[in-house]
Amino acid sequence: MSAQTQFSGGFDNAPIDAAHAFRAAMTVMARPGEIRLISGAQPPAPLSVAAGTLLLTLCDPETRVHLAGDLDTGTVRQWLTFHTGAPISEAPEADFAVGSWQELGPLSQYRSGTPEYPDRSTTLIVECDDLQQAGAELTGPGIKDTARLSLPNVPALRANAALYPLGCDFFFTSGDRLAALPRSTQIRVEG
């Protein structure tokens, strides 16, 4: 891969770009079902702009990142390492995991926190083909009455929510669109 790809595509103005990106990430995590645009990074394919920006905003040498399946290319590894310094890890050790839902694999392999430290759980960044405020019905903290979000796999995510206060937390990315699903959200199937 060319040095050009590896060294470029970071934030133009890291403090400002990261502040805007974090505001979007915080807003969607605090309001499950909402979709925000997030940009600033130009990551190498197949990483989406939203996933790349999120990684630059949240990852550094203190966070282990798992790249799942097709995302685990030399190009992506070098880009992530150059811009964040985050160590690449296997799924069970990861603080952050990125990939498509199929390639991220069973949720049980990720850390779901401990009863005394439920924050020590993996945050999954799920690359989606599409992201819509439609589909499964969500209730819980951050949601006024109900919200809707297109979720990749409702049974698995309901099982994760049932672990509360343990469990993984999710960002969903598609292009420059970002949504989130914390473990605190209750999911009802459409109908």
Binding site: P15, A18, A19, F22, A25, M26, M29, A30, T57, L58, C59, D60, E62, T63, P118, D119, S121, T123, P141, G142, Y164, P165, D169, P182, R183, S184
Partner: peptide, 15 residues
Amino acid sequence: KRMIRRAILKGLAVP
């Protein structure tokens, strides 16, 4: 800031 931001996100996930 990244360390604080990660803590805020986990805090929001477990109110």
